[in-house]
């Protein structure tokens, strides 16, 4: 019963965070609920096939991410192209990372307006900013989940935070 209990414990622990993540990615709370539910049933299917999962959190996020991409495919939006286009982060952009750590900054915006600002973010930034600053995942973990390079993820996070900061200042004027 250990795997069963570990699986249910993972649900109790991560369901809300996964739901929050999915809500920002698909902009539809009902769809987000379905996607989270599917993520857990697919994870269980994986265990039923005889596999084991050492750490549920990254596995669940990876599964959730694939389901979200499937959802994008159904809608056939440009979001998918942005999401899958690694070429949008040219190698030469990495000097942006040298500009400094953005973790110490805070947005100059009322807390109540932050969710709507996050919802407006371009999807290629929203995805990684949500994972980094709401889900608390580190760039290496995000890179593993999204199957991209750590540098690529770091640049996208940096640009996303810059976008947030600039928009927050505009709204506060």
């Amino acid at each position: 019963m250990r795997q069963e209990q570990a699986f249910l414990d993972a649900f109790d622990k991560y369901a809300d965070a996964l739901y929050r993540h999915a809500s920002f990615r698909v902009s539809d709370s009902e769809k987000a609920r379905d996607i989270v539910s599917d993520a857990f049933t697919k994870t269980w299917d994986y265990l039923v096939k005889g596999n084991t999962i050492d750490e549920f959190r990254p596995f669940l996020y990876r599964t959730l991410n694939r389901l979200i991409i499937d959802e994008y495919r159904k809608k056939r939006t440009e979001s998918l192209d942005h999401l899958l286009d690694e070429a949008m982060v040219p190698e030469g952009a990495f000097e942006e990372l040298v500009a400094g750590n953005r973790d110490d900054m805070e947005l100059a915006l009322d807390a109540q307006r932050i969710p709507e600002l996050l919802a407006e973010m371009p999807v290629q930034y929203r995805e990684v900013v949500v994972m980094r600053y709401m889900d608390g995942l580190m760039p290496a973990e995000i890179a593993d989940i999204l199957d991209q390079s750590v540098n690529n993820i770091s640049v996208r996070i940096h640009r996303g935070v810059t976008w947030l900061s600039e928009r927050a200042e505009e709204r506060n004027l």
């Binding site: 953005r102 110490d104 947005l107 109540q112 932050i114 996050l118 600053y133 709401m134």
Partner: peptide, 13 residues
């Protein structure tokens, strides 16, 4: 936890 992380988590909790 960074300031930004704290802020965003609080705003979306």
């Amino acid at each position: 936890m960074s300031k930004l992380e704290t802020q965003l988590k609080k705003a979306t909790k």
